[in-house]
Nucleic acid binder design. Structure first.
Lengths: 292, 292
DNA sequence: ATTTTGTCTTTTATCCACAATAGACAGTTT
DNA sequence: AAACTGTCTATTGTGGATAAAAGACAAAAT
C-alpha cells in the first residue's frame, strides 16, 4: 500500500452527511471547496455513491436516491491519517507508559510496533522534535528527554512570557477588531458550560485551547502562535490521561477565564496582567501536579 | 546509492591530521571517541590507511609509515553531509535568489535540482519548517512565506524577549559558574579581533553566535536555547550574502558586545538591560536594512 | 581485571516505486 | 461569458530495499 486513502474515506463520510440533507448535490468544484479536497477526490466520492445506489450521477445532475444508512459510512478508524495514528501511539508510549527519561527511541521498533513504514515514523519524530521532548543523535538513535518537571517548568516559563505579551496586545486591539466578537462567543460558551458543569465539564479542554489560541493570535507573531502548538499537544494528552478532579479543575479554570476575559474587556493593562498571571499560575500548578 | 559515506570520509580526513602528528595511532575505541564515530568507521579508516601505505596495522600495532600527502585527503565537497548540501542549496534559492513570498515549493523539483532523492528534501523541509519561513499544505505543496520585513520583526521581537531574560539570569549566575570563564575567553577574542579589525572582521559572525548562545544557554530553558537556532541560521546566511559595510557593522557590534559583557560582569540589572537593548536594537536595524 | 580486537547483528540514511491526491487544460454546458 | 465536466499529468505520502554506520558480545591481549 503506497498511500492510504484516508482523505477519500473521511471526505466521503462528510459528504454523506451533506447528502442526507438535500435532494441533489452541487457541482464538483463547489463540493471540493466545501469538503476541502480536490476534484479528483470528489469524483471518487461520487463514483462510490453511485455504486452504493445512493446517487444517480450524470454530469451536472446528481440526484439523491436514498438516505445514507450507517453501513454506508467508512469506519472511523479508517479515516484517521497515518500521522495521527503515529502521534497517538507515540504519545501513549511516552506519557501513559512508564517511559524513563534518557531512554532510547528506535525508529524501526516503533514502526514495527505501530505497523507502518519507517519513513512515516521518522518524519513524525522530526516534526515532533520541536516540542523539546526528544532529541536526535545523528546516525544513531533518538533520546527521550521525558515529560519531566523541568520540561513543564521550561514550557510554562515561555508560555507565561508569550501570553502576558499577547494579552497586553489583545487589550489594545481596536474595538472593531473581529477578535472581540470571537471573545464574545467564547465567553458565552463559558457561561453555558458552567451552568451545566456536571455534564459538560469535558468540553473545557477544547474551549481552553480555543480561548488561549485567540489570545496568542493577537500577538501577530508566528513564533508565539506556533509555540502554542506545544502547549496544545501537551495539555491535550495531559487532559486525556489525567482525569483526577477534572470537574473541579475545569470549573475553577472556567471562572478564571471569565475573570481574564473581563479584564481584557476593561482594557486596563494592570488588571489584564493580574488576571492573566493568576490563571497561568494555576494552569502551571495543575500541570506540575500531574507529573509526580 | 543508499547512503553516502560522508561520515567515513570526513573522519578519515580528520584522522589524517592526527596521523601527521604521531608515529603510531591509539586504540580503536580511543580513536572513535576522539573523532566522534563508531568503531566500525574507525576500522574502515584504518583499512583505507593501510591500503594507501600510510600505516602498518596489525591488531594493536598501528605504525605510521609516512606523512600524508594532499592527495590522500578526500576532497572537501565529498565530506559534506547531504542535509548540509540541501540546506545550503535551499537557502541560496530563497535568500539570494529572488524568491517571492507566496511562491510554491515543489519537493520533486527541488530534489531534481539538487540531485538527490525526495525523502531527504522532504525531511529537510519538515525540519526547516520550524523556522517559520515555509508552511505545508497537506497533500499539496509547501508555501514560501518569505524572508520579509514582518518575518524579521517577529523574529527580533521574540529574540529580544528571550535575550533580555537570559541576560538577566546570566548576571545572576554564581561567580564560580563556568560561564564566566567562557565569557572571559570570548571577551579576549573581541579585543583581539578589534585590534586587527581590517583583517579579521570576518571572524565576527562566528564569535557573535558563540557569545549570544552563551548568554541564551544561561536561561536553562530548552525552548529559549532552541529558538536561538533560528537566529543563528538567519544571521549566518544573512552575513554570507549581504556584505555591504561589513567591516563597520562588525566593528560597531564588537564594541556593543564589550559594553554588554562589562554590564553582565557588573551584575547591575539596569545596566545589563540597557546594554542588551542597545545591542539588540542595532542588530535589528542591521537585519532590517538588508531586507529591502 | 581492564581494555582491545574480531565478528556479527541491528539501525539509520537514502533512494526508488507506486497508489492517492492535487491540479491543469480543453471542450462542453448553462 | 462564466462555470462545469472529462481527461490527463504532476506531485505527495508511504512502504520497501540497501549501503553506511552504530553497536553488541565473546575471545584475546595487556
Amino acid at each position: 500500500m503506497a498511500k492510504q486513502n484516508t482523505v477519500f474515506k473521511d471526505a466521503f463520510n462528510r459528504c454523506l452527511k451533506l447528502l442526507a440533507e438535500t435532494s441533489s448535490l452541487p457541482s464538483e468544484p463547489e463540493l471540493g471547496t466545501t469538503l476541502g479536497v480536490s476534484r479528483t477526490t470528489i469524483r471518487a466520492i461520487l463514483t462510490r455513491m453511485e455504486e452504493l445506489q445512493l446517487l444517480a450521477w450524470d454530469k451536472r445532475a446528481k440526484v439523491v436516491l436514498r438516505q445514507p444508512k450507517p453501513e454506508d459510512y467508512y469506519p472511523a478508524e479508517e479515516t484517521d491519517s497515518l500521522s495521527d495514528i503515529i502521534e497517538r501511539s507515540f504519545m501513549r508510549r511516552i506519557l501513559a507508559g512508564g517511559a524513563e527519561p534518557g531512554m532510547q527511541i528506535n525508529e524501526l521498533e516503533l514502526a514495527r510496533d505501530i505497523g507502518t513504514g519507517t519513513t512515516s515514523v521518522r518524519e513524525f519524530l522530526i516534526r515532533f522534535s520541536r516540542f523539546g521532548l526528544i532529541e536526535k543523535r545523528p546516525n544513531s538513535h533518538w533520546i527521550l528527554k521525558g515529560f519531566t518537571r523541568e520540561f513543564a517548568l521550561e514550557l510554562t516559563e515561555v508560555r507565561e512570557m508569550f501570553e502576558l505579551r499577547s494579552a497586553a496586545s489583545f487589550a489594545a486591539l481596536a474595538p472593531e477588531h473581529p477578535a472581540w466578537a470571537d471573545l464574545d462567543r467564547i465567553e458565552t460558551l463559558h457561561h453555558d458550560i458552567l451552568a451545566d458543569i456536571d455534564n459538560r465539564y469535558k468540553e473545557f479542554s477544547e474551549l481552553d485551547e480555543r480561548f488561549h489560541l485567540l489570545v496568542h493570535t493577537s500577538s501577530s507573531n508566528r513564533f508565539i502562535v506556533d509555540f502554542y502548538d506545544i502547549i496544545t499537544i501537551v495539555f491535550h494528552y495531559h487532559y486525556q490521561w489525567n482525569k483526577t478532579n477534572a470537574r473541579e479543575r475545569n470549573a475553577r479554570a472556567l471562572e478564571e477565564h471569565l475573570d481574564y476575559i473581563a479584564a481584557l474587556r476593561s482594557r486596563d493593562r494592570a488588571r489584564v496582567e493580574t488576571a492573566c498571571r493568576r490563571h497561568l499560575k494555576s494552569a502551571r500548578e495543575t500541570l506540575l501536579q500531574s507529573i509526580q
